[in-house]
Amino acid sequence: PPTSTSPHSSPSSPSAGLPPFFMKGSIIQLADGELKRVEDLRTEDFVQSAEVSGELKIDSSTVERIECSRTPNAVIIQFSVGENKAQVCVEVLVEYPFFVFGQGWSSCCPDRTTQLLALSCAKLSVGDVCISLTLKSLK
């Protein structure tokens, strides 16, 4: 069975239980120290930051399935993660944004994401390849 996990949450979320850093205009620091707004991030920013960090590894996580959740305004997304195609399920609010390789921010309900966070999003669909992270274990 797929592993269940949940992405970040924060008690100081501005709206709908989402972390504050997804709000348009939030300042993000890349691993090399460069500052960018969240809406200006590109795929290479994540890839290069992971390379610099040394502790984190970027994985490709393909959306396999999107199902309704019992929780209001939430969905369960099943990902196939990394080379081993590990099956991982996450339960998130429909407006939660994921970063899709070569495309940018995407959510299950882009209109709601834009309404709540002012962050422009594409529609997250089955087959999309999202950026995820793996923590490299210490040797």
């Binding site: 592993t3 997804f22 300042i27 993000i28 691993a31 991982v88 992270l133 793996t134």
Partner: peptide
């Protein structure tokens, strides 16, 4: 006196979910 509020800066990895178990190289 009102002190200027500093703008929060978030680390890049905050934006990316950890979806995979810890791996070794």
């Amino acid at each position: 006196n009102v002190e200027p509020r500093s703008v929060p800066v978030f680390p890049w990895h905050s934006l990316v979910p950890f979806l995979a178990p810890t791996q070794s190289d």
